[in-house]
Write a protein that binds this DNA or RNA. Sequence first.
DNA 1: ACTGAGTCATAAGCCCAGTTTATGTCGCCA
DNA 2: TGGCGACATAAACTGGGCTTATGACTCAGT
Lengths: 307, 307
Amino acid sequence: MTQSAEGQFRAGSLAHRVPDLGALELLLAVARLGSLGGAARELGITQPAASSRIRSMERQLGVALVDRSPRGSRLTDAGALVTDWARRVVEAAEAFDVGAQALRDRRDSRLRVAASMTIAEYLLPGWLLALRAQRPDTAVSLLAGNSAAVAERLLADEADLGFVEGVSVASGLDSVVIAHDNLIVVTAPGHVWARRRRPLEASELAVTPLILREKGSGTRQVLDAALGGLARPLIELSSTTAVKAAAVGGAGPAVLSELAVGEELSMRRLVRVPLADVSLARDLRAVWPTGHRPVGPARDLLSLTRG
Amino acid sequence: MTQSAEGQFRAGSLAHRVPDLGALELLLAVARLGSLGGAARELGITQPAASSRIRSMERQLGVALVDRSPRGSRLTDAGALVTDWARRVVEAAEAFDVGAQALRDRRDSRLRVAASMTIAEYLLPGWLLALRAQRPDTAVSLLAGNSAAVAERLLADEADLGFVEGVSVASGLDSVVIAHDNLIVVTAPGHVWARRRRPLEASELAVTPLILREKGSGTRQVLDAALGGLARPLIELSSTTAVKAAAVGGAGPAVLSELAVGEELSMRRLVRVPLADVSLARDLRAVWPTGHRPVGPARDLLSLTRG
DNA sequence: ACTGAGTCATAAGCCCAGTTTATGTCGCCA
DNA sequence: TGGCGACATAAACTGGGCTTATGACTCAGT
């Protein structure tokens, strides 16, 4: 009531402006099947429910999404676009789902995975989706922790397969490199360095206060090693997420895993600063107890992760 | 009842296993603020509502997410992981939101954008989010179509700024290259080419039946030009999405924009096949009517898109 | 100790979005 | 012209999520 201007923001957060997951799924089904009734059947609801749901989604968005005809329904142009955006939301939700299922401590798990935080956050959900696609019955449980914790679980036979980032591997474990990760320097688009063309020298990086993870973290170790000394922290934060948030907010340049900032880079919330002579690469490895070469589900997962 | 085995899939689609957007937003707020009540305040609901919502989310996922104490609430380890996955869902929803708002035909728009499909699908939501971050009041409207339609809108003064992919620019329009896009060859992980080390030669690509967009599409034109002849279609489909789906399903190798398959590559639903001597690059350009150099909101958006 | 301000939990009642069942309308095809 | 499929409409039910009101607990300051 006492509200200002065009109430397009204030009025309820995201959840009120974006259709819920069920509606988005329904839209995808309509797009795929070309029929409201068919989509309804697939989702196990009745046709009027689907009809009304699509209708209310159109009302909510203020855009016609599907062309109804007595012979079926096709997406409008706008509908096609919306559907593509919806697909990305649903895919993120699928990753969430498969991750959350693995997180639940299930006794009956046939595959117990232990992974470092970065890998569990950014890579594992994708792998688990792929695994589920080809072996739908494999129940997976996930335990996330640092490298030491992963090693511990494997050696105690509380996990079948582990994933760690970093240079060294604990004794008693075999490993194979499955991917490479680069640490990169990023800033908010407004920062001076964002417009910079000339690559950054190590010396320059070493004397600039940076937004960093806490001392002892994997990324910090790699950075210190590469700089041949200690990086100067502007702030120290205890999670990748917090570092990202600070960088996006314009607090300064940050050093982060490429994996962590893919989204932010493509949305231009962050900009990558070119690096000259510094190599901030690190290996991502799958690990398992020496001798216990992965078999069965563990082997399946492992083979998915190798490029 | 008559259901088989561990009912972890059957039982309701995604929407029933994944908390709704409101709950995920709430979780992010709790993570950021360290307090249920604080998060509730921020979202404009009462503390008991937040409390109960988090609780039911924990019940739904079967995992404890937050440690409550009389001094506040902190995420558990599992909660931190879940929150990170939740953030990705919410970010996708934000992109959906800003896109959908622009799609709505608003007379009062201060910035009217026309964009080709690929750009509207994959890049524009990110740009609009960035734009909203720095100019919250700019109302944007979006019109998606092919290059010709974009040109038409601009010349009819029905759009202020356009974005197109492709080589040529219609006469009467000025343009600037804002990014580059590569077409790449992808297959399902099971395909022979997925394990291939030796890069693919143009000659080889030319004789292999491929999953392609329809003739006349931008990607098809670039491909034909690069092969110095015509690509052989295995199937022709009318949307990027359909091509992706076919490729993921293992129908064969496909040629697609790098932009379209980022997600699929990182989730290993698709694998990139290395190319030897073929260059499938194309420019992405911002365009505007000759002489009407972008000013105001259009200039703001344009400057966001340039790397 | 006591009080006050912060936290979260519990209980009871309200409300609306989304659902189902039942029916109506329209177009196409045999 | 009947019949089938697809979508729309109407009315009644249900439940999840909300609010208000209250209670229990911890900490800090007096």
